[in-house]
Design a protein around this nucleic acid. Structure first.
Length: 316
DNA sequence: ATCCAGGTATGCA
DNA sequence: TGCATACCTGGA
């Protein structure tokens, strides 16, 4: 358990991704580009909820309040400028593809304020309140297979625990993409690991789901990529074929990993939130799903994220 | 200590 | 179809 050495800190260059008190498991000792602004303007609260609100599990906030995150073989740092613009830094020597990857991940070509404006806030004071609380909340677009892996870990676990499992999977079985930094393992890699071994990553009974899903995918080359391309209803049906994937996980994978904004995942938070805010006490998850799609429309998944963020904030 | 945590699969009426 | 229960494990 050692902290990052001064040598590591000296290796940072440029104006600011230069934290002085990094926690262990923080970004590897690379050199970083100068900060570059995007056109995104959000509050610190909204940025935090976007990166660390249960949509993604590989972002960590640094002591200097910047965010360090990774997906595929990319690692990126984000922060807010004094003017409230989202800025990014990338490892020096990165090629152009990482900028495209950032654009895809953050969905910079999608105007989420305009999308939220199509939600029924004019007639629904609660969703209006949620939107006002987290203006500019986004839904990142994560790699499909990684999203599946993360949400297979999620059953009856809190976000911090899920992050821990995912970090262990990466550390133990993922390719090293930078010093002391690992990508998530591929499904091909996972297929070669026995369930009992996987359990060492604190997965508990979820290890069986991951092992069985890996076997299923290994027997069906191209299945995952095809599923990502299918229309939402068909893709959901297919995902549910996977061991450990039910309606909720399938909706999360499609919402966060395939950009299907009509997916409306119903978990315990949403169940309680809808009971309380919409007077739907006693409704079953399937009924809530139906209500959500009817009430919130084709962007129900964005509404779900607002509802989820709002309830989490209330609980604190 | 006992219970619960972003669920799913299975076994019974 | 509909409703309990088991399933791992760590933290409150």
């Amino acid at each position: 358990m050692k902290t990052v050495s001064s040598r590591a800190n000296r290796a940072f260059s440029g104006p600011s991704p230069n934290p002085t008190n990094q926690v262990a498991a923080s970004p590897s000792p690379l050199c970083w580009s100068p900060w570059k602004s995007t056109a995104l303007q959000v509050s610190a609260t909204t940025l935090s909820e976007t990166l660390d609100g249960g949509q993604t599990f590989r972002w960590r906030q640094q002591p200097d309040l910047s965010w360090s995150g990774q997906w595929s073989s990319h690692q990126v740092r984000l922060r807010l400028s004094a003017a409230g613009l989202v800025q990014y830094a990338i490892p020096t020597g990165s090629n152009r593809s990482i900028r495209i990857a950032i654009r895809t991940f953050l969905r910079l070509d999608d105007d989420f304020a305009a999308l939220a404006d199509t939600l029924p806030w004019r007639s629904d004071p609660h969703i209006a309140n949620c939107i006002a609380t987290f203006p500019g909340l986004r839904i990142p677009r994560q790699p499909f297979g990684e999203t599946l892996l993360c949400f297979l870990c999620s059953a009856t676990k809190q976000i911090v625990q899920i992050k821990e499992m995912v970090a262990l999977l990466a550390k133990n079985y993922g390719a090293e993409i930078a010093p002391n930094l690992h990508a998530l393992p591929t499904w091909e890699t996972l297929a070669a690991i026995p369930e009992d071994t996987l359990r060492k990553c604190l997965l508990g009974f979820r290890a069986r789901y991951i092992a069985a899903t890996a076997q299923y995918l290994a027997a069906r080359p191209g299945w995952l990529d095809e599923t990502e391309q299918l229309p939402y209803p068909v893709a959901k049906q297919r995902l549910i074929e996977l061991p450990g994937v039910g309606a909720k996980v399938a909706d999360c994978v499609l919402l966060f990993g395939a950009g299907k904004l009509e997916a409306f995942p119903v978990d315990t938070w949403i169940l309680k939130a809808m009971a309380k805010r919409y007077d739907l006490t006693g409704w079953k998850p399937d009924q809530i799903t139906h209500f959500g799609r009817q009430h919130f429309g084709p962007l129900a998944g964005l509404a779900q994220q607002y509802l989820f963020a709002y309830e989490r904030a209330q609980a604190r």
